[in-house]
């Protein structure tokens, strides 16, 4: 089972093979856990979210088509679990705010410039939209097109958000360039 591809495992799951489902869970539970933690869930909630994602995967198993990329499917379910979780936490994340958020939204940069700050905290300081694209593209290694499909935004929006998120991270981290502005 461990040698089967994601698509092959999904086909087995559709046929009712429990072992295939377990293989898929074990293959992706760690990446999903980190996905949710990097989005800013605590460990306990992140585990719950991983479980919820796999339950959704099971419930929607017949809607998965082998021509579609599996990671897009999985992370779409994960992202929706995350959105529901945020709503239950009282942090309303409406569709409008997801899609139409200001690209130049102010980052909470309470930390003075030149004070060292670790990367985890820096990520946490990003706005929801920017943190999401960073986590998806850099940690989950999803393609920009996939991210666009998952979030339901245009490809250009994803690219812009990544660009601005990285810029903001550099500001937060007071990033010291290894080269000077005058050359290498």
């Amino acid at each position: 089972m461990n040698n089967l591809s994601d698509v092959e495992l999904m086909n087995q799951i559709k046929k009712g093979e429990q072992e295939a489902f377990v293989s898929l869970v074990r293959r992706y539970q760690q990446p999903l856990l980190n996905f949710f933690i990097r989005l800013n869930a605590n460990n306990t909630d992140a585990e719950d979210l991983v479980q919820e994602t796999f339950l959704k995967l099971f419930n929607y198993r017949f809607r998965y088509e082998r021509t579609a990329k599996f990671t897009t499917f999985l992370y779409t379910l994960a992202y929706h679990s995350w959105v529901d979780y945020k709503r239950k936490c009282g942090k309303v994340l409406t569709i409008e705010s997801e899609i139409q958020s200001d690209e130049h939204s102010v980052v909470d940069c309470n930390t003075p410039i030149h004070t060292k700050i670790n990367l985890k905290d820096a990520l946490a300081k990003l706005s929801e939209e920017h943190r999401t694209v960073i986590v998806m593209s850099i940690y989950s290694e999803l393609k920009h097109q996939e991210i666009a499909e998952i979030l339901g935004v245009p490809l250009g929006t994803v690219k812009s958000r990544i660009h601005f998120a990285l810029k903001q991270l550099r500001e937060i981290l007071s990033y010291e360039p290894i080269t000077t502005r005058n050359g290498k």
């Binding site: 377990v22 869970v25 074990r26 539970q29 760690q30 856990l33 980190n34 933690i37 990097r38 460990n43 992140a46 585990e47 991983v50 479980q51 796999f54 339950l55 990367l119 985890k120 990520l123 960073i134 850099i138 940690y139 990285l166 991270l169 550099r170 981290l173 990033y175 360039p177 290894i178």
Partner: peptide
């Protein structure tokens, strides 16, 4: 600068999975 930043971002350690979630699911 962006290349360095991305490399550093990737160095953020993963949270270890403390238990197998499959049985519970």
């Amino acid at each position: 600068q962006t290349k360095e930043l991305i490399q550093h971002l990737k160095e953020v350690s993963e949270e270890p999975l403390l238990r197998d979630l499959a049985p519970e699911i």
